[in-house]
C-alpha cells in the first residue's frame, strides 16, 4: 500500500507553498541569468562588453544596463522579449526577496498582530517595487 496524502491533507498552506516557491524561484533565477548571459553573447557581447556589464545585464536585462558599453545598436537589447524577461525576473526576485524579509521578521515576531502588520507591509512593498520596476523596464 502506497502512503500518499491527498492535497488537502498535506498541510499545504501559505508557509509551505512559499517555502517551495522560494526554492523554485531560486532555480528560476538561475535560469533567467543563464538565458540573459547566453542572449548577451549571441547579440555580440563578447566584443563590445566587459564581464561586469554582462553580469549586470544578466541580473536584469534592462537596456539601460548596456547603454554605457560599446554596443553599436541598442534596439535588439530593448525588444519586447527582453522586457518580458526583465519583468519576469523582477517579479520572481522581488517575491523571493520580500518573502525572505517576512521570514526573518517571523523569526522574531510571534504575536499574530505583529505578523499581520509585517505581511501587510510586505504586500505594499512588493506591489510598489513591482509597479516602479515595471515602469522603469517598459519606459526605458
Amino acid at each position: 500500500m502506497k502512503r500518499t496524502l491527498p492535497i488537502s491533507k498535506r498541510g499545504l498552506n501559505f508557509e509551505t507553498i512559499m517555502w517551495f516557491f522560494t526554492r523554485l524561484s531560486a532555480l528560476a533565477m538561475y535560469g533567467f541569468i543563464i538565458i540573459g548571459m547566453i542572449g548577451a553573447l549571441v547579440m555580440g557581447a563578447r566584443m563590445n562588453m566587459n564581464f561586469a556589464d554582462v553580469m549586470r545585464w544578466a541580473f536584469m536585462s534592462n537596456s539601460t544596463h548596456v547603454q554605457s558599453t560599446n554596443i553599436p545598436d541598442i534596439a535588439p537589447w530593448a525588444n519586447a522579449f527582453w522586457r518580458l524577461v526583465a519583468s519576469g525576473f523582477l517579479l520572481v526576485a522581488s517575491a523571493h526577496g520580500v518573502h525572505g524579509l517576512v521570514v526573518i521578521a517571523d523569526d522574531y515576531l510571534v504575536k499574530p498582530l505583529q505578523r499581520n502588520v509585517v505581511r501587510l507591509l510586505s504586500i505594499v512593498m512588493l506591489v510598489s517595487i513591482g509597479l516602479i520596476g515595471l515602469y522603469v523596464i517598459w519606459t526605458a
Binding site: 526577496g97 525572505g100 524579509l101 526573518i104 517595487i129 516602479i132 515602469y135 522603469v136
Partner: peptide, 20 residues
C-alpha cells in the same frame, strides 16, 4: 546568507529608487 539577502534587498531598493 541573511547578510547577503538583506544587502541585495537594500541595493535593489535603492537602485530602483535611483532609476525612478
Amino acid at each position: 546568507h541573511r547578510i547577503g539577502g538583506l544587502g541585495m534587498g537594500i541595493f535593489v531598493t535603492t537602485h530602483i529608487l535611483a532609476s525612478f
